[in-house]
Each structure stands twice: as structure tokens, then as C-alpha cells.
Design a protein around this nucleic acid. Sequence first.
DNA 1: CGTACTGTTCGATGACTGTCGACATAAGGA
DNA 2: TCCTTATGTCGACAGTCATCGAACAGTACG
Lengths: 115, 115
Amino acid sequence: MSSDGRHPPIETVTLTDVFGALADPVRLLAVRTLAGLGSSPCNDLYRAAGLTIGRSTFSHHQKILREAGLIHERIDGARRILSIRTDDLDSRFPGLLAVIATETAPHDGTTTGRS
Amino acid sequence: MSSDGRHPPIETVTLTDVFGALADPVRLLAVRTLAGLGSSPCNDLYRAAGLTIGRSTFSHHQKILREAGLIHERIDGARRILSIRTDDLDSRFPGLLAVIATETAPHDGTTTGRS
DNA sequence: CGTACTGTTCGATGACTGTCGACATAAGGA
DNA sequence: TCCTTATGTCGACAGTCATCGAACAGTACG
């Protein structure tokens, strides 16, 4: 099962949980970066994301993402290998990961003809 | 146009904004209910959603949904007709509305076979 | 005009949350 | 064993947020 005490079974995850976890720019960036990396240790993800927050804060975000069912942690010696729970998420919320991967350019108004 | 000072142009809306707006159970319920109604006055939506919060609180949530680009308000006499900004959202975040419409049964564990 | 209906705005309040720094734990190497 | 690296936990603090009630504003109707 998914439930090893640290990762919630995907069936118990709600959209509110997921949206709440992704509502923070740091966490959304982390998820996107991790999606690009496939899987990586915390520290690699931390650096790859180019975050300026402290390690303890990152650990806090990581916990929220894990408890929201978005990421998986595999213990490998002294490090935790992180990965997106792709299969689980695709089965429970089809299309969600595609939406997350959407490039969001805040001022990309080139295709509009509005006032 | 979308930009009448009350509704943000859809290009300026970010995923963080949208996820933040949908992170609250009341607002997620409101959006889902409104999606089912098509369009309706605030009060009808309020009652249809079966909410127990006060009107002023609902008005607060409504404002957040509007400013996040999720809903549109059309003034019709003494009432505001609410509707989902379906076309805008489909073009900016394809698949998002489908994800929102996902039925979320918290204890539906019939399809899992994960490691 | 006055009453009812619809919806917003304001101030206060309690809860939640992101952040930090300091400390703890665990593994690996010199 | 000691030191370094990797990561989590704890306590504190400041900022944000959901909620309420009361007051306010616009419209419809008699």
C-alpha cells in the first residue's frame, strides 16, 4: 500500500488538500522542478529549484507536499529520494499533472487583442 | 471585456492564484456548484451549495474567486449573476475545469494496486 | 415614500501558515 | 572516534486568512 505511515493512500487525498499544497509558490516550483528531474534527493531539488529559503523551511514544505499525496519519499541511507506520485495522481485526478506543468507567464498578453 | 476593473484579464492570472482560490473547501464547493448551475445569482448559489457560513463571509469568498479569475459577475438590477469563466480558463489552463469537476470520494479505495 | 430583498464593506478576532534559527538524528568517511 | 553532510524537529514570531456581526447601499415593489 501507499500507506507506510508517511504517505497517505491516494484515495484519501482530496482536491482541497492538493490545491492547498500547490497554493504556495515555493511548493508549486518544487513540484514542477521535481517533475523535470524525475527523482532526486532533497538537497538536489532544493538547489535545482534555486530557492532562497532555509533548509528547515524547505523540509516543512516537503512535508506538506508529502502529506497532500503529491510526492513520495524513499529513504536511501542518509538521504531521502523524492519523486512525484505520478501514477497515483493520474489515476485519482486525471489531468492534474498536466495542468501543473502549464507554463504560466504572468504578463504574456501577446495573443490578446483586448483593451 | 474581462478587464472592467473587477475581473482580471485571464493572462495575468497565475496557477498559484487559482490554486490558492480553490484551496478553501467553501470556495471549491461554490465553484463546483456554480459549474452545475451554469449561472445564477449569489443568493441562489449560496443556498444551492448548502453553506452554513454567513452572507458576508460568502461575499468575501466570492470576491476572492472573482479576483483569481475563476468567476464572472454580471450586474442585473439588484443582483449579481455569477458564472464560471469557462472559455478563459479553458484557454489559459486547459484541463483545469475537468480536474475541478472530479468527483472526490475520500474512501474510494477500489482501484488501487500500488506498491 | 417606505419596506423588503440582495449584496457589499468594515472592524475585530481567533486560527492558521511561512519563515527562521537552534538543536537533534543518522549515515559516511578520515 | 571525530567531523562532515543530509535532513528532520522544535519553539517562536510575524503575516495572512476565514469568520462573524453590524452597518451600509442599491434596486424592486406596494
